[in-house]
Design a protein around this nucleic acid. Structure first.
Length: 434
RNA sequence: GUGGAUGUAGCUCAGCGGUAGAGUCCCAGAAUGUGGAUCUGGUUGUCGCGGGUUCGAACCCCGUCAUCCACCCCA
């Protein structure tokens, strides 16, 4: 025997075992249904792109994290690190074949070579949805509404969408005379919930001075309801404007749609990504805020300016289902698969495989999932298999049953079995209880 | 990328210089065509990996890989 290669996967990369993959697939299905219910349509793009396409406007951080190499044809290529940049290229390339406003969703893996942590991987899936070609409160709100619907559909109704408008913040910074330090300030402000009031004040004072720090803290304070917060930031920003009007409009639509309780106006949410220009959102789980935002996004002035002269304003967000799954696991909400086979047909007598396959087919024809144990084995072992697969029923038809002309259907969870005079009756009984 | 903690049986962990352990799980049998319980017996293992020190290393030292935590950034 020669040496074997050690089986292993790269840091930050993971195999998905059936239990985990079934759950992830289920989340993807539910997300897809949610997106479509709002009229979003799916697209896909290549994993690999020219590096200049993906890195065109990337800052230092992105450049350090991207997987980049020269392919065998000498091309400088990179793996996508998000779905937004490929989407921009996609829009520029296909604009003439599409229509505006264009609402798409895109669920696919992306890669970032950064350090790992719980819920942070080097290969993970993003589920993006955007509306491009329009700059309106209705579009902004629709993204919030989809975010909320998605969280409910994914089994995380105990979460809140935190909303802010960068334009209000920028106006406020102008008034403070601190606009030139906005990047540094935004970075500190964004960490408020993490480092606390005192550290935030100290760091802001170091950047903008003590009095500005106090005003900033007053601006980003949380805890008030939406209207009170909006009133406060409007005053501190120097009065009403299109930006605060937009936040009020979004509020009206949220109230009318019955999701206002799940939408919080949070002036400390700013988002590090510098391409956001208007509303920004993050979503936190009430039970596990520390894992970070599980659905984030915002409005950008121009999606594809790198690739086309056509101006494409847009708004969108991204669900991090890998992070959400990590959160569910940490919270012990690992959820049922929901797709276990309904019926396992036991394999008890040699030469009866045709009977067993016909029985499984009959269950499937009735809309149930069914499988035949693939070899004759001790009953106990077949039960153990049925249990591992989470089957609801076992169908037992051995020589004893054949002699007596009965079909035994066993409810595996209840450990109770019933005899039926025909296969049709057994199928009917299983269908009724499935 | 920087700093810290942790890697021992499938799982949860003990052992911290002198022949690898517990619980659980798993396998076989008691038991006959029924997986929950009981009893009996049994397998658990490159002690993450590679070097070094030592008569002797799971244990001490160095490196490396992975996980977790913080920073950074973000889903």
């Amino acid at each position: 025997m020669g040496d074997i290669i050690q089986a292993r996967v790269l840091k930050g990369f993971r195999d998905m075992l059936p239990v985990a993959e079934i759950q992830r697939a289920s989340l993807i299905d539910r997300l897809s249904a949610t997106f479509r219910s709002f009229g979003f349509v799916p697209i896909d793009t290549p994993v690999l792109e020219y590096a200049e396409i993906l890195l065109g406007k990337a800052g230092g951080e992105t450049e350090k994290q991207v997987y980049r190499f020269t392919d065998s044809g000498g091309r400088d290529v990179a793996m996508r690190f998000d779905l937004t940049v490929p989407f921009a290229r996609f829009m520029a390339e296909h604009l003439s074949e599409l229509y505006l406003p264009f609402k798409r969703y895109h669920m696919a893996k992306v890669w970032r070579g950064e350090n790992t942590q719980r819920g942070r991987y080097r290969e993970f899936m993003q589920c993006d949805f955007d509306i491009v070609g329009v700059d309106s409160a209705a579009a902004d709100f629709e993204i919030v509404a989809v975010m909320r619907a998605a969280m409910v559909a994914l089994g995380a109704p105990d979460s809140r969408v935190h909303l802010n408008n960068r334009a209000v913040f920028n106006r406020f910074l102008e008034r403070l005379g601190a606009a030139n330090a906005s990047t540094d300030i935004l970075r500190v402000v964004d960490k408020l919930h993490k480092i606390g009031q005192d550290d935030t004040r100290a760091q802001l004072a170091a950047i903008a001075g003590q009095s500005a720090a106090d005003e900033l803290l007053a601006f980003i304070a949380s805890g008030d309801d939406y209207d009170a917060t909006l009133e406060r930031v409007t005053r501190l920003a120097g009065g009403p404007g299109p930006d605060t009007d937009r936040l009020a409009e979004i509020r009206d639509m949220a109230v009318a749609s019955g999701i206002a309780d799940a939408v919080v106006l949070a002036p400390s949410i700013t988002r590090g990504l510098d391409y956001y220009t208007g509303v920004v959102f993050e979503t936190f789980l009430d039970a596990l805020p520390d894992i970070g935002s599980v659905c984030s996004g915002g409005r950008y002035n121009d999606l594809a300016s790198l690739y086309t002269h056509q101006k494409l304003p847009g708004v969108g967000a991204s669900v991090g289902i890998d992070r959400l799954l990590a959160a569910f696991e940490a919270l012990g909400r690992s959820g049922t698969s929901g797709v276990a086979p309904s019926v396992l047909v036991f394999n008890l007598v040699d030469g009866k495989n045709a009977v067993y396959q016909a029985a499984a087919a009959a269950f499937r024809a009735a809309g149930l999932t069914a499988e035949v144990y693939p070899e004759r084995k001790k009953l106990g072992q077949q039960f153990a298999y049925a249990e591992k697969k989470g089957a609801a029923f076992g169908l037992i038809r051995g020589s004893a049953e054949e002699e007596r002309g009965v079909w035994v259907l066993k409810d595996l969870a209840a450990r109770a079995q019933t005899e039926y005079p025909s296969l049709e009756d057994a199928v009917k009984a299983a269908s009724a209880r499935a």
